[in-house]
Structures are given as C-alpha cells and as structure tokens.
Design a binder for these strands. Structure first.
Lengths: 155, 155
DNA sequence: CGCCGTCAGTTGGAAATTCAAACCCTCGCC
DNA sequence: GGCGAGGGTTTGAATTTCCAACTGACGGCG
C-alpha cells in the first residue's frame, strides 16, 4: 500500500487512497441509500465480511462514515455518511450515469428522482460560470516544478 | 474478482468494475493531462509496470482508452482517452475538489482553470432544473423487487 | 432452563494480486 | 559495437482477498 517511488502529488490520488479500495464506494452507496447495517452491507454489496469490516474501519477513520448505536441491548450498530461522506455522493451519481449510458441497454436497475420532479441526470458544471464542464475548456496548472502536463489532447 | 453471491444490480458497481481497480483512475488522470506514454505513466503514477500494463489492456478493452502509434520505426505507442473516457473526467474533478477541501491545507498541487477565466470549482447539478444536487433532494427507486432502500437518511 | 435465531463481527488457511527488480527486444545514434 | 530509450514481460516474494466457520451478546419461545 506504500507509494512505490514518488508519484505526482495529487488530491485525486489522495482521495482515492481513502475511497478507492474495492467495495469502499459501494459501501458509500448503500449507506447513502440508508442501508447502514453490517449484514445489509454484506448482502447488498456481496463483499466478504472481513474485508467489509476493514473498509468500514477505514471509512470511519477517514471521517466519511460514522458508526452509530441504533439499539442498546442487544447492542446494534449502523453506519451513516458524515457531511464529508455526503459530498462524495455526486461521485456515485456520475458513476451511475456513465454506467447506465455505456454499460446498459435500457434496463437501469435504479432510477433516482430529483426534488424538481424529473429523473436525475447529473451534470458537472463550473461554479463560476455555470457552464457544463468540457475537456477542451480545461487547463491544468501543476503547482510543483517537475510535474508537467503535455498540453491538451486533441481529437 | 467474481461476485461473491448476487449483490444489488447496479450501474455504479458495473462502472467501478471497469475503472475502480487500483491505479485505473490515475491512468485516466494522466491520459487526460496528455501524458499517455508508458514510461510517463509509470513515473507519474508510481505503479508497478506489470500492473500498469494489465490496467491499460483493460481500459482499452473497455473502450475508455485507445492505443495509438505515435511513431513507426521505432514503434512507439501512446494512450489517449476515448469520448467515453473523457466523460469520466468530471469524476476526477470531483475527487480532486474533495481532496483539496478535506485532505489539504492550501497547498493544492494542481490548479485547473476553466475557459471562463476562473479556477474550476466543479458542481454537480440536475440537468432538468439546474439546481445543485443535494442528498435530501434525491429519491432512489430500485427497479427490481427485493432490492429495497431504507428511506432517507435524516440528519 | 435450553435451544434457536439475529446481528456484528473475528479467525484461519488457501487462492489470487501486487510489488520490485531484472530481463528482453527493437530501434536510432555515434 | 556499444549505449540508451521506449514499451513492455518474467520471476519470485510479500500482501490481500476470499470463504467458511466460529464467537459472543442478546431476545424469544416452549
């Protein structure tokens, strides 16, 4: 799990170090759906119980989930997303949208409805101008020397 | 890698099966930055060469990357994102934004500029109404029986 | 009380992956 | 001929994953 050499310093990599392991984002999915109990997670995700236990510890440590007691005697727990965890939900929506479009043929296993009454189609926009983000409109500026980018990728 | 039992059918899981393995999204990052050559990828990502080779094959098979010859004699290759690959770039922006906000203290290693002249702050919005997506505004509707959701997660 | 069932994990050992370094092959260049 | 770059593959050891079984604290039932 240690970094091999010294790769590009990057917040994407840092975030993935927390939520990029197998099953972690599926845990977040279930927890966002309100299915936060251990056995529900095992069933809905299909992960081995030990791996799941490890992931849950990590996500709680990272401040993405909290472990709450929903019943003393018998003691029973439930995992819920923190505010920081909920901020990752858009990630799930984009993964879902991509999968629906590219991997499925009109048999979407889940439909998400937005409060406005329409089915949610998530769009990533620029907070400053409101435009949808397109690759050609982006320019990356590395802040540390030595970590260059090779310019825009033309079609 | 086989699914343990039969977990919830889900496009999020399907998409993660393609891009959720270790390093895959970092490959996409580099390729979107224009650093598509094998040795660049090894250096910038810090992945073992063999694992990287495996990931690249998988991403090409999935239609997320293409392998192009940029020089015959000596034969040299370069990986580039396909249209489908570029559609995953917003994912990277959200991971970056989350990491910048939660994992860093004003030492962002990369700044992305949008064509509008401002630094990019990605926002996920509803295509129908334009509003920013908030957890409380979403309702999930599973399409297959047996895969319930336990209702909204209150604060 | 004795037994069964649920929930939330832990344990143990075999199987699959990852890691790191070394190696290979094709070329261009001097 | 030797060196170096680019783009991988091979090898063997170190980690992780997987799976099934087990634990332990209860609650309920007869």
């Amino acid at each position: 799990m240690a970094a091999t050499k010294d790769p590009r310093p990057c917040s994407i990599a840092d975030t993935l170090a927390l939520v990029g392991e197998k099953y972690s984002l599926l845990v977040l999915r279930e927890v966002c759906l309100g299915n936060g109990r251990f056995d529900q997670l095992v069933r809905n995700i299909g992960a081995p119980r030990d791996v799941l236990a490890t992931r849950l510890r990590r996500l709680v440590d990272a401040g993405i989930l909290t472990k709450r007691v929903y019943s003393e005697r018998p003691q029973r727990f439930e995992y819920r997303p923190t505010a920081a965890g909920l901020e990752l939900e858009p990630l799930l929506m984009i993964l879902k949208e991509w999968g629906d479009r590219h991997l499925r043929a009109d048999d979407r296993p889940m439909v998400v409805e937005h409060a406005c009454g329409h089915e949610l189609v998530p769009l990533v926009t620029c907070a400053a101008c409101g435009e949808e983000v397109r690759h050609e409109d982006l320019t990356a500026h590395p802040q540390s020397p030595g970590w260059t980018v090779s310019g825009p990728v033309a079609a």
